[in-house]
Simulated scan of single mutants.
Amino acid sequence: MIATMEYVSILDNAEKLGEMVFQSEVMEDYLEKKLEMEQDAEAQKLIKAFNHIKDHYEDIQRFGRYHPDYQEIMKKVRSTKRAMDMHDTVAAFKVAERNLQSLLDEISSYVATSVSEQIKVPKDGALLTDNCGCGSGGGCGCAS
């Protein structure tokens, strides 16, 4: 690959953009909430319990609803996940994570549409943010 000055400039600007994201308030909040969650013993206990039951659930998935413990495991998975998600530090982390994802989605959308309106940009939660649900922002023509 031949590196041109334009190519080097694009890479430099992408690196600067990455640094700007890393130094943003949204990223600071995300890292702060992540650290709080990692240092919260109760949250870690809930996460560990969820991961354990999730592993058991994955073993049962091979047989699906025909497994004798299927209903019991499904109830345990839901209740364990709910307990984990409702914990204050986990919930705060998930909000910070969504905010960071939203920022990254917005940046990718801006970069993509700067190149061409026809570029499809995958989005987290695309079904909730545009009418067509395909992630193109309506550019595909399937929007109602």
Rank of each mutant, 00 (worst) to 15 (best):
E97F: 13
H52Q: 08
D55G: 09
E58H: 07
K94C: 13
L104E: 04
F93N: 00
K120W: 13
D55F: 15
K48T: 02
V95A: 04
Q101W: 12
Q101S: 13
P68V: 01
R98L: 06
V115Y: 11
S108Y: 07
A96Q: 01
K54R: 15
F50L: 04
A91L: 04
I73P: 04
F63C: 11
R82V: 09
Q44K: 08
D105H: 04
F93G: 00
F93M: 03
D88L: 12
D85K: 12
L100C: 02
K120P: 13
I60F: 04
F50S: 02
Q61A: 05
Q118V: 15
D59F: 05
K120I: 13
E117H: 15
K94R: 06
H52E: 09
H67Q: 03
F93S: 00
V77G: 03
Q118E: 06
L103F: 03
R65A: 09
G64N: 04
L46G: 00
Q101G: 05
S79C: 09
Y70W: 06
R78N: 14
I73Y: 12
Y57M: 09
P68S: 03
F63D: 10
K75V: 11
V77Q: 04
T80F: 05
V111G: 01
I107S: 01
K94P: 02
H87L: 02
E97N: 12
Q44L: 05
K54D: 11
S116D: 02
A112G: 01
E97Y: 10
Y110G: 14
L46Q: 00
D85N: 15
S114H: 08
S114C: 05
A83N: 07
V77H: 10
E58Q: 06
H56D: 12
K75C: 09
T89C: 03
F63K: 13
K76C: 09
Q71I: 12
T80Q: 15
F93I: 08
S109A: 14
M84Y: 01
L46D: 00
K94M: 13
L46I: 01
Q71G: 07
S114K: 04
I119D: 01
E72H: 15
R98A: 11
S114T: 05
H52A: 05
H87I: 01
K76F: 08
S109M: 12
H56I: 14
E97C: 07
L103N: 00
Y66D: 14
R78W: 08
M74S: 13
D69S: 10
L104V: 05
T89Y: 01
S114Q: 07
K76V: 07
E117A: 14
